[in-house]
Design a protein around this nucleic acid. Structure first.
Length: 566
RNA sequence: GCGCCCGUAGCUCAGCUGGAUAGAGUGCUUGCCUCCGAAGCAAGAAGUCACAGGUUCGAAUCCUGUCGGGCGCACCA
């Protein structure tokens, strides 16, 4: 479809005396006006004429230049209407010849993008809150893959820090009556909550916790170390179950602990840049160059131990050395904005030119109606429960509406999980979301299942066409006259992927997918595909196939399955 | 107190980085399965684009301020 826009752009730039970049092509308000539009206001000054006069004059000239496109002046706008049959043939063939690779590009060839995603903390069950980073990050990775980038998805596990000392202390004290094997994460969570409850009135316990972390950090006590390893291993196994269900994999799973041996050299590296100072006994980097009130970045505490920021610095150095990334994206909640500002502030003060390639892809918080989620207070919704209930609901609907569907459990898993994922990617990532069971279990309207259902219906038509041996003839593209909404959507797909990647915004894709599903459903209700004249059926089957494939690609990029039946 | 983010229909959101009469879903009121899958389609009612200024041919979109909500602000991660 780009070819039409390009043609309009070239003709306009020649006739209007603009550079091609100055020609801004947009969509008309009302699709009946045309497929593309050009507002003549910017030319008014240059030509010293009223926009409507310019539009009328230019439209006439453009009609001489343009092929298969009609230009019409409407007030100050020039609207362009592509010949319906040409539009249909061009778009449908573009998809069908490209197949699953429709929408891919090579713009990222030879460039690497590192994505830090998911990054849960060990020993706590994943809440619905963790869904956001995982699902947004995974969608971004797939989007960049299709744009030709080499991507590295990193799960930066929270496996270090003082809470592990607490956990080990709790395990020492109550481990005997805890069943760690059958449901390890829930057991660890129980220990964690109990520790916090009893810590206050029990200084001995608090000291045991601190001592255990010191031992862990010094590496002096192999027994403590092996307990930590055990906890980590059990947790990762549990997480993998969730990742499998979400269809998410990682290129690198590295805990913060991995960077332990590199912390000294990291600190030295920052020190040798001459930007560190001692303040109140702690080693800091002053960041008042960002703004007067920006708090400093702490590299080392008074007691000599390191912090989150130190480990994150070590990690970002490591990533740069390993990958020399084009972009390094941290898909992390907006509550950590300051942390990343500080991280980048340190890189900036070190005069590392790749500092601007490091981006915090922040997203809004998932909240409950009664406030912020808190694992410690037991005010959480666990991700596994959400997935289970959504799948259960999907299965209930399948039994009601498609009792003969083969393998209903497997499809219910795809629909239920799809509903949850789509619900999270539906809105702009920066917006806070309030968790709502009713919304997440709804499969109608602007939901994942709606798109999946559309895809399944199109697939069903294609199966029938094949069974009846219809759709094989020469296509009569005029039979797609009413499908321009569908065609224009499909034609825009490559642009949407590019834009979603540039802005690191999966919701641009989900919005587009919904729009395509809506368009094709409207068309489908009015236009019969099978049993028409062979040319008509051929063209419509081709459109159905092109739409079905594009929907499947869109769903796949977002992380949803596209079952052929449901 | 300071900083960052958000504010569009009852509710949940789009609005293509400044353009035409602000659009969807949901909920509500209707209509559509003897016809390719009704998890669908079509129609109706529903808006001071938080408020007030400014910038210009033109502002939901950019700037300033106010209000409301969220988040953060040195030894947690």
């Amino acid at each position: 479809m780009q070819e039409f826009i390009q043609q309009i752009r070239n003709a306009l730039s020649e006739r209007g005396g603009l550079s091609p970049e100055e020609v801004k092509i947009e969509q008309p308000r009302d699709p009946a006006l045309g497929d593309f539009a050009f507002p003549c206001f910017p030319l008014a000054k240059k030509l010293k004429k009223a926009p409507p006069a310019i539009a009328a004059e230019l439209a006439e000239q453009l009609n001489v230049d343009l092929e298969n496109i009609t230009a019409t002046a409407t007030g100050p706008y020039i609207n362009f209407l592509v010949d319906r049959a040409t539009l249909a043939e061009t778009v449908v063939n573009a998809v069908l010849t490209a197949g699953a690779s429709y929408g891919t590009s090579q713009e990222g060839a030879g460039k690497k993008i590192v994505i830090d995603l998911s990054s849960p903390n060990i020993a706590k069950p994943m809440s619905v809150g963790h869904l956001r980073s995982t699902v947004i990050g995974a969608a971004l990775q797939r989007i960049f893959d299709t744009l030709g980038y080499e991507t590295v998805g990193i799960n930066h596990i929270g496996d270090w820090g003082s809470q592990f000392g607490k956990l080990i202390a709790a395990l020492d004290r109550w481990g005997a009556d805890t069943d760690l094997e059958s449901d390890p994460i829930q057991a660890l969570l129980g220990l964690y909550v109990r520790y916090h409850k009893e810590e206050e009135g029990d200084p001995e316990l608090a000291e045991a916790g601190r001592a255990a972390f010191r031992a862990l950090e010094n590496g002096t006590d192999p027994e403590v170390r092996s307990k930590w390893e055990h906890i980590t291993k059990l947790s990762l196994l549990e997480f993998d179950k969730i990742y499998d269900r979400l269809g998410v994999g990682f290129d690198e799973v590295r805990g913060e602990a991995y960077y332990e041996p590199h912390l000294e050299s990291t600190i030295q590296r920052v020190e040798s840049a001459g930007i560190t100072e001692l303040s109140e006994g702690a080693l800091i980097v002053d960041l008042t160059h960002i703004s007067e009130n920006t708090p400093p970045c702490l590299l080392r505490k008074t007691d000599g131990t390191t912090l989150y920021a130190t480990r994150d610095l070590a990690a970002v150095f490591h990533r740069w050395e390993l990958y020399e990334f084009e972009r390094c994206l941290y898909v992390v909640g907006g509550d950590q904005r300051l942390h990343f500002q500080q991280l980048k502030g340190v890189l900036d003060r070190m005069k590392l030119e790749w500092e601007e390639r490091v981006e915090h892809i922040s997203f809004g918080m998932m909240r409950l109606p009664e406030g912020r989620m808190s694992t410690r207070k037991g005010r959480v919704v666990f991700l596994e429960d959400v997935l289970d209930r959504a799948v259960e609901e999907a299965l209930r609907i399948i039994k009601e509406k498609s009792p003969d569907l083969p393998d209903p459990e497997a499809v219910a898993e795809q629909i239920g999980v799809g509903a949850v994922i789509f619900n999270d990617l539906r809105r702009e990532r920066i917006k806070d979301v309030e968790f709502n069971w009713e919304e997440i279990l709804s499969f109608e309207g602007e939901t994942g299942p709606y798109v999946q259902y559309t895809h399944a219906r199109l697939s069903s038509i294609l199966r029938k066409a094949e069974a009846r041996e219809e759709g094989g003839g020469e296509a009569d593209w005029t039979a797609l006259e009413e499908a321009s909404g569908v065609l224009l959507r499909i034609g825009r797909f490559p642009d949407v992927i590019r834009s979603a990647g540039r802005n690191a915004e999966p919701s641009e894709l989900s919005t587009w997918v919904l729009g395509l599903a809506r368009e094709v459903n409207g068309w489908y209700a009015k236009n019969r595909v099978l049993g028409q004249d062979s040319g008509v059926t051929a063209a419509r089957v081709a459109l159905v196939k092109a739409t079905q494939e594009t929907l499947a690609t869109g769903l796949r990029l977002l992380g949803l399955a596209a079952p052929p039946e449901m």
